[in-house]
């Protein structure tokens, strides 16, 4: 298992850079991962998505799929792809400190 430093804290990450333990996540870490993923600033809408993902993972034990995110937050597909360009499924899950979404839609 490799470790990586985010916002001054050393975290265990898997081979794709996802946090191994979602409990270790906090907002500063989210900001640091987002920067690494090319998102310089997390706006209110970014946080809306992240908070939904965190809640959904707590309730269901897995990161939500993109369609679950759009129907759960009211953020449209277009907006979601603008907020998290080039691969929102992985980016959102990674920034939220969760594993990859377990679902196809």
């Amino acid at each position: 298992m490799t470790t990586k430093e985010f916002a001054g804290a050393t975290m265990e990450v898997n081979e794709e850079g996802f946090l191994v333990d979602p409990q270790m996540w906090n907002k500063d870490i989210a900001v640091a991962i987002a920067k690494e993923e090319g998102i310089d600033e997390l706006t209110e809408d970014h946080w809306k998505v992240i908070e939904f993902c965190r809640q959904s993972a707590t309730d269901n034990g897995a990161a939500p799929t993109l369609r679950q995110i759009t129907s759960g937050t009211g953020i449209t597909t277009k907006e979601l792809f603008k907020l998290y360009p080039k691969g929102p499924a992985k980016k959102v899950a990674k920034i939220s400190g969760l594993g990859k979404p377990e679902g196809c839609v």
Binding site: L66, K86, G87, P88, A89, K90, P101, C104, V105
Partner: peptide, 12 residues
């Protein structure tokens, strides 16, 4: 539809 959507989600 399923694979295309998965690809977009992964930035492809």
């Amino acid at each position: 539809l399923v694979m295309g959507w998965a690809a977009l989600g992964n930035g492809i």
